[in-house]
Simulated assay, not measured.
Amino acid sequence: MTFISYAQNFEDIALWRALQFFPGGFYIDVGANDPNHDSVTRAYYERGWRGINVEPVDVYYQALCRERPGDTNLQLVVGETQGEVDFHVFPDSGLSTASDEMVAMYAASGIQLEKCKLPMRTLASLCEEYVSGEIHFLKIDVEGFEGAVLRGMDFSRWRPWLIVIETPFDQEPEWKDIVPAAGYRKVRFDGINTFYLANEHANLAGAFDIPPCTIDEFHLRYGHPLAFPVGAAEAALREQARRAELAEARVRELEGSRWFRLGQQLNPVRRLLRR
């Protein structure tokens, strides 16, 4: 079965190189967003893996419930404590956040967010309730709230083999010492995310020596921006379908007209006159 990559920056391929020999694995995706577009976990779900998807934004949460019925899908914020938190929604994007700093930055740029209240739980409490075995990878993409997620995890009890954390702008985040102190080493930075490997799985480090490439024998999802562009082709097909529908409607209109029916009735007379 050819591996089809759905992730934004080949994160799923990088993980697959290390994890492909462990079928039926388990993942936790904090900030899952869309179940297909830019999804790090979609390819794994297709291969029978299952896990936990945490997504606060309602439209994406509902989509996850529809398309990932085998997963545990949760609509909440993962943070440092239990309770309730203000969550700020940036519609139709992956930029929604519970981070006050990110909200201030958006406001300074003139971006208007929709605020709502959501329950907040720690990652440790979710593991306590839903995890019964190995966690093969943990992905965190929460727009500036990563530190709170990490501080709410008990890494002495639950040990994801790999952790992928979005770090696009700051290679020295305020939480930079948390993961190494928990017994993880940095094995890759892909320009968007930092990959950490648990010390007890150091034998997998070689999988990250080179970036995803042709040796991984993968295909990109249909419509991936780095694959053959389909936007223009789909627009052209929609236009042709629209024109065909209009033509069919015009034909039906003509066939229903009085003059068409009269012409049909005169056809035998025309054939007789030609003879």
Rank of each mutant, 00 (worst) to 15 (best):
Q82K: 11
D216A: 09
E143N: 00
R159S: 09
G133S: 03
Y130P: 08
D170Q: 08
L162M: 12
D154G: 00
K117D: 03
P119N: 06
V89E: 02
I163V: 04
K186C: 12
M105F: 04
W175I: 06
D100E: 13
P180Q: 10
K186R: 15
N199R: 11
Y196H: 15
L150A: 07
S93L: 01
E129S: 13
L150K: 07
T194Q: 12
P119H: 03
K186W: 05
L95Q: 14
E174N: 08
F208V: 01
D209L: 05
I165S: 10
L123Y: 03
A124R: 12
V164T: 12
Q112K: 14
E172C: 09
W175E: 15
E172M: 10
Q82Y: 06
L126R: 01
V187T: 10
L150W: 06
E114K: 14
Y106K: 01
R151C: 05
L123A: 04
E217L: 12
F195Q: 14
H88C: 06
V149Q: 02
E143G: 02
R185N: 13
A148I: 06
T122Q: 04
P212A: 10
Y196P: 15
W175N: 11
L204P: 06
S93P: 00
G133N: 03
G206M: 08
F155Y: 12
F189M: 11
S125C: 05
E166N: 07
S156K: 13
E217R: 15
D177M: 09
P212F: 06
N193M: 09
F169S: 06
